[in-house]
Simulated assay, not measured.
Amino acid sequence: MRYSSSVNKGARGFRGVVGESKWARLLELGVPRVHGPRVPLLRQGDPGTTVLVLLSGRVKVFGTEPDGGRLLLALRGAGDLLGEIAARSASRRTATVETIDRCTVSVVPAERFNAFLEEHNGQAALADYSLSKLSQTVPYQVELVHFSPERKIARLLLEVVALADDAVADRYRVPFSQQELANSLGVVRSTISQHLLRLKDSGALRQDHGHLVVADPGLLRAFAGL
Rank of each mutant, 00 (worst) to 15 (best):
L199G: 04
T94H: 00
S184N: 15
L81Q: 05
A11K: 08
G13R: 00
R189I: 11
N8W: 13
E20S: 15
G69P: 00
V39S: 12
L205W: 05
A127M: 12
Y129N: 02
L54T: 06
R33Y: 03
R2H: 13
A124G: 08
A215E: 13
L199R: 10
R189W: 05
L181W: 10
D166W: 09
R155S: 14
L158M: 01
A169L: 12
G225M: 03
P139N: 14
L52P: 04
V59N: 02
P149T: 07
L126P: 02
D46E: 15
R198S: 11
L144R: 15
D67W: 00
I85L: 14
L226S: 11
G16C: 09
V53D: 12
L75S: 05
G13M: 02
R43A: 02
A86N: 03
V142G: 09
G19V: 05
A204D: 06
L131C: 11
F14N: 12
L205C: 11
L163C: 03
D80S: 15
E150V: 09
R38E: 03
F176W: 01
S148C: 08
G63K: 03
K22E: 09
D170G: 08
G77K: 04
T96P: 04
V97K: 02
L196E: 01
V138R: 14
R112C: 07
V17E: 15
Q207V: 08
E98M: 14
A215M: 02
A87I: 02
S202P: 06
L42P: 00
G63D: 04
F116H: 05
V59G: 06
L27T: 01
L199W: 05
V213N: 07
E28K: 12
R171D: 06
K152E: 11
Q141G: 12
L27S: 05
V160E: 07
A110C: 00
Y3W: 15
E84R: 03
A110Q: 02
V53T: 10
H209K: 15
A154I: 08
L185R: 01
R43V: 06
L134G: 15
G122T: 11
L205H: 11
L196D: 01
A222Q: 12
A154N: 10
L54R: 00
L126M: 13
Y129E: 01
D216V: 02
R58V: 04
P139E: 15
L226M: 10
E111K: 14
D208G: 07
P139C: 15
S56L: 04
L196V: 07
D128H: 10
A110Y: 03
L158R: 04
A115N: 07
N114W: 07
S56K: 07
R43M: 04
S6D: 12
I192K: 08
A78V: 08
Q141L: 13
L158D: 10
A90D: 11
V187L: 11
R155F: 04
K200G: 09
A127T: 13
A127E: 10
G218M: 07
L41F: 06
G19I: 02
V174K: 10
P217T: 04
K60F: 14
G79Y: 02
L117N: 01
A167H: 09
V138T: 15
S177K: 00
A95L: 05
R102G: 12
V34L: 11
R76G: 13
Y129D: 03
A124V: 13
K152M: 14
T137E: 08
S5I: 07
V161P: 07
R2C: 10
G210L: 08
L144G: 15
G122H: 12
F147I: 03
